[in-house]
Simulated scan of single mutants.
Amino acid sequence: MQSRSMWRLGVLLVGSSLVLPVVGVSPRVMGAAPATVEESQVKAFETAQKSLAAARAFREQGKVEKAVAEYRKSIAADPATIDAYLELGELYSQNNSPRKAVEVLDIGIGMALAQEIGGPDIGRYCVLLARNHEALGRMDLASGDLIKAVKYLPDDPLPFIALGDMQAGRGRFDQAVAAFRQALALDPGNVEGWWAFGNAAIKGRLPEAMREAHRGLAAIDPAQGAAFAELMKTAVPGKEPARP
């Protein structure tokens, strides 16, 4: 998403004037010219980008608190730094802070959509926002997030996998199976998706769906199919099947 940052810098620079010193006159005699609005914006942008780069470096090093602090500095320097909101939200999510994740993801996604910035990245962040809303018990908001995600990820199973997980977590196994089926229609070779499908089918005592999961896994890998067949014989409803 760095291209947006470069575009924004280009917009800030268009129309700005360069103040050149008069030949032979000392700048001290002339005095420093007050910064223009454009110059202040460019300085804020550069400061925000410096903090954003530092945050990413700390994140790569696993220094979460320092990364969070730098993301916050980036936002404080330039509140229009969309990447800082989104990446900070992802970091909060990875560290089990759903309330904080929702706060910044909601802002970042909203800003992006207001500027008509879409695409797969925004779709994935919508899925992430949905999972954090789910963690807070806000299922209506999570559903709305997934609807947005599908718009930007029309050929990606990710939103349907997330929906299937949510429905399974609520004990709605028939609806979970339906969601996983939509995901697998987009990606028939997704082994994890087939196992999630089969798991929901077993928990929901849905024999036809169990057989469908078995066929799907066997078509990808006979060993996976055989493992699921054994699981169908021995699984206790409500118990999480273990992957082989």
Rank of each mutant, 00 (worst) to 15 (best):
E70R: 07
Y71E: 01
Y71W: 06
Y71P: 01
Y71L: 04
Y71C: 02
Y71A: 04
S74W: 01
S74L: 05
I75L: 09
I75S: 04
A76D: 10
A77H: 05
A77N: 04
P79S: 06
A80R: 01
T81G: 03
I82V: 07
D83V: 09
D83P: 08
A84F: 04
A84R: 05
L86V: 08
L86P: 06
E87S: 12
E87M: 11
L88G: 09
L88D: 05
G89F: 03
L91M: 15
L91W: 10
L91F: 13
Y92A: 05
Y92V: 01
S93P: 02
Q94M: 14
N95G: 10
N95P: 11
N96H: 15
S97I: 06
S97R: 13
S97T: 11
S97V: 10
R99W: 14
A101H: 07
E103V: 11
E103F: 12
V104F: 01
V104K: 00
L105T: 10
L105W: 07
L105Q: 08
D106W: 10
I107D: 05
G108R: 00
M111G: 08
A112I: 00
L113M: 12
L113S: 11
A114D: 14
Q115E: 05
E116N: 15
I117S: 09
G118K: 08
G118S: 12
G119H: 08
G119R: 14
P120W: 05
P120K: 13
D121W: 05
D121K: 13
I122W: 01
Y125E: 05
Y125W: 13
C126Q: 09
V127P: 03
